[in-house]
């Protein structure tokens, strides 16, 4: 049985621990041993994206060290953080002969959660069920960053009882973008409005995403607008048996 190292991400760790538990449950049910290196913190993306590379570096180095100490594939339930490890670490250490190979070695054993299930384990039906309509928002760093789109959709298609409704403009950004939503709240709010309008047009009570940053942003917007739709992480859906 494979062992994986869970990089749970700082957002799930701090705000959505139940999502992390869902990830663990799904993997364990499929026969995967899951471990959680306790020294992990954040991947450093907030600082990297803001342009504060000198401050992103120590965080990235810390993450590399933490996962170098353990064996097995690294699974991340976030397209955005997976993109950070897979691509941005190499950018961050492009001129650093000491850290670049280490960053690349970590990148090569890193998988986004749904990618791991479908591509690595070859699982498309995790035995989940759901009653009623759902809709799925393809988060930007998941489908453009790490090129993972077919995998979550395949998993979704195999959830018994779920009626997956297409979300109009599903590939449009929700406006999170990390620090962007704080630095440019006016722009971010416009993207969010459109995303919520599109969600409403599906009349689905539930929106599924595979990134907690976007989840936090969209759910926060729905709550501010006193809407009733729920945003869930795909792991929660897949853990619904």
């Amino acid at each position: 049985m494979p062992t994986v190292q869970l990089f749970v991400t700082c957002l799930i760790d701090s705000f959505y621990p139940h999502v992390g538990e869902a990830v663990v449950d799904v993997l364990r049910r499929l026969g995967v041993d899951v471990d959680f290196p306790r020294d992990q913190t954040c991947c450093g993306q907030p600082n990297f994206n803001a342009g504060l590379r000198e401050e992103a570096k120590p965080i990235a180095q810390h993450t590399i060290r933490t996962f170098e100490a353990v064996d097995g594939d690294v699974v991340i339930p976030s397209g955005s953080c997976a993109h950070m490890l897979r691509h941005n670490y190499a950018e961050l250490f492009a001129d650093d002969p000491h850290w670049l190979p280490r960053a690349k070695a970590l990148a090569s054993r890193t998988y986004e959660f749904t990618e791991y299930l479908v591509d690595k384990l070859g699982v498309t039906d995790v035995g989940a069920r759901w009653d009623g309509p759902l809709t799925y928002h393809a988060t930007c760093h998941l489908h453009r960053g790490v090129g993972v789109d077919r995998q979550p959709r395949t998993l979704l298609a195999h959830v018994r009882g779920a009626e997956v409704r297409p979300l109009p403009e599903e590939y449009d950004c929700c406006g999170f973008g990390g620090i962007f939503s704080v630095e440019h709240p006016e722009l971010s709010a416009e993207f969010l409005k459109r995303k919520i309008r599109n969600l409403e047009s599906t009349q689905s009570p539930t929106l599924v995403v595979a990134d907690t940053g976007c989840l936090m942003h969209i759910a926060g917007g729905l709550h501010r607008q006193q809407k009733t739709q729920r945003v869930i992480h795909i792991a929660e859906l897949l853990n619904n048996i």
Binding site: F15, S181, H223
Partner: peptide, 17 residues
């Protein structure tokens, strides 16, 4: 910035770790 168009979730009392 954050509060411009959305609410902020509370931190979990017991984090995943």
């Amino acid at each position: 910035g954050w509060g411009y168009s959305k609410d902020f979730p509370k931190f979990a009392i017991k984090p995943f770790r």
